[in-house]
Design a protein around this nucleic acid. Structure first.
Length: 195
DNA sequence: GTTCTAGAAC
DNA sequence: GTTCTAGAAC
């Protein structure tokens, strides 16, 4: 008898994964428990694994899989993104928020992160988590809109740059402190909380 | 995207 | 010996 059955069935044959993890957002945006606000064009949900005190995702109802499927016809949609983001900023005046997209998204359906700058959360665990919000891997809303207006599409980054950005040495997003490791960073972030 | 855990780093 | 990171997951 094995100590752990893992994903194997009783018979010992590997269990097939029925739903791939990358469609998780498509399920969340239909779940009333996750929805924060909604319009004809977009829906805002709570991130299932928030990386800061406030962490929302804004997605279009239209089936756009990622930033790389955007074209000039989507500029109005992005303006709606900004309009709703401005509302959310007013509703969360006590937090400093930023809005943007990951350069290489993992989940299906275009999604804009709306995240507070504290970055205090038990779900923030890895250097990759940190760098995906604090380096150029995080593309600000304004930069996406600008590139779309100027070139009509969003360019993909090279695998080398992707790797380099996520491997950037840890650096506090609020001061010059360079943490030794993730626990060090998380302790340090707490020190920025007291106003 | 997360979970799990081997082995590197301390 | 314990903490921490990084790569596989069918």
């Amino acid at each position: 008898m094995s100590k752990r059955l893992g994903k194997e069935t009783v018979s010992g044959t590997p269990a097939k994964q029925s739903k791939h993890w990358s469609i998780g957002l498509l399920e969340s945006m239909r779940d009333p428990e996750c929805i924060v606000k909604q319009t004809k064009k977009i829906v805002v949900i709570r991130d299932k694994y928030p990386k800061a005190k406030i962490h929302y995702l804004m997605l279009p109802h239209e089936n756009i899989s990622s930033i790389h499927k955007l074209n000039s016809t989507h500029i109005d949609l992005l303006k709606e993104f900004n309009k709703i983001y401005e509302e959310i900023k007013i509703e969360n005046e006590d937090h400093s928020l930023k809005a943007g997209f990951h350069a290489v998204p993992s989940m299906q359906r275009l999604h804009m992160h709306i995240i507070s700058k504290d970055m205090v959360s038990p779900c923030l665990k890895t250097k990759m988590h940190w760098n995906s919000f604090t380096t150029d891997f995080f593309i600000n809303y304004e930069d996406i809109l600008k590139e779309l207006k100027e070139t009509g599409s969003i360019k993909k980054i090279s695998p080398d740059l992707h790797k380099k950005l996520l491997a950037t040495p840890l650096q506090c997003n609020q001061c010059s402190f360079k943490p030794k490791n993730m626990p060090d960073l998380k302790d340090h972030l707490m020190s920025h909380m007291n106003v």
